[in-house]
């Protein structure tokens, strides 16, 4: 197997991403303090005891940002895994089988694709009721159309290759052809588009929670924090700068990492989701 070699820039992206996520997953959150504990006066600028300042309830912002990154990334990653699994299934079937199945899948995907992302997300939240599940479902619905289309396109290309024809001639059944030949050879596309979907997922979660349809306080997510920060933007700008910077950094590093994966897996230019 070829070794997965990436350029320094995308490795830096990956490192930056891990740096953002690891503290949230580990016990470092505890070390930084309880995200829900009131530690001091309200709306204090950064200082000892509250390194990123305090919010409107006197909670320290630093542990809240750490919890927020964790919530947002976990939620988005879960959603992207769902998207990847569904897109892989639909895309490979549509691309390999063609015919009516292909038409059906692609029409549904096009309808979804025609909605602006945030409108779709708000619709889902309105139907399912605000909360984590609504955010997750929204991210899936927003990211699934492009991913399915690209997986389908990759599957169409793979389906025409001689090793697939050779397997069919040998008498291989559909599950073997798809599982052994088509899926492994579109896995690169899925991985690349997965990273782009992740950054879209983060912005969708941010947007939804910002509008109040996503994660609900007191649980922190980047969107929740930015929304709270927005209210006090003039009086306490640190409330929005911390989570805002982290959001930008997360999306940036994911995209940089995704570009590296893309260069590695599909040297020809493909579109990113954003």
């Amino acid at each position: 197997m070829k070794k997965l070699r990436l350029d320094p820039l995308s490795l830096a992206g990956l490192a930056c991403l891990l740096l953002l996520v690891l503290p949230a997953l580990g016990s470092l959150v505890d070390a930084a303090g309880d995200p829900d504990a009131i530690v001091g006066p309200r709306l204090q600028p950064p200082g000892p005891g509250w390194w990123l300042g305090t919010d409107n309830l006197g909670r320290s912002v630093l542990p809240r940002v750490m919890e927020g990154v964790g919530t947002t990334l976990l939620l988005s990653s879960a959603a992207v895994l769902v998207t990847a699994a569904l897109s892989a299934g639909f895309g490979v079937l549509a691309g390999y089988r063609g015919g009516y199945l292909n038409e059906l899948i692609m029409r549904v995907v096009e309808v979804l694709y025609s909605f602006p992302a945030i409108v779709l997300a708000v619709l889902v939240a309105a139907v399912a009721g605000p909360g984590q599940l609504a955010a997750l479902a929204s991210i899936v619905l927003v990211t699934i159309p492009l991913m399915t289309r690209l997986v389908r396109a990759a599957a169409v290309a793979v389906a025409g290759r001689d090793y697939v024809t050779a397997a069919v001639i040998s008498g291989a059944r559909l599950p073997r052809v798809l599982g052994r030949h088509v899926l492994p050879n579109v896995a690169g596309t899925i991985a690349v588009q997965g990273t782009y979907a992740l950054s879209v997922g983060i912005s969708v979660e941010g947007g939804l929670s910002f509008l109040g349809f996503g994660v609900q306080p007191p649980q922190a997510s980047l969107g929740v924090l930015i929304r709270q920060g927005g209210t006090y933007m003039m009086a306490a700008p640190w409330l929005i700068i911390g989570p805002g910077a982290v959001l930008v950094l997360a999306i940036l590093s994911i995209n940089v990492f995704g570009d590296g994966l893309r260069d590695r897996f599909e040297p020809r230019e493909t579109r990113s989701l954003v």
Binding site: D162, T165, I169, G171, R180, P184, N185
Partner: peptide, 18 residues
Amino acid sequence: AGRIQAVLQHPHWSLNPR
């Protein structure tokens, strides 16, 4: 199965790279 086989044209794509 097994009674007909083929050797096709494109050596680059004749084998599953994975």
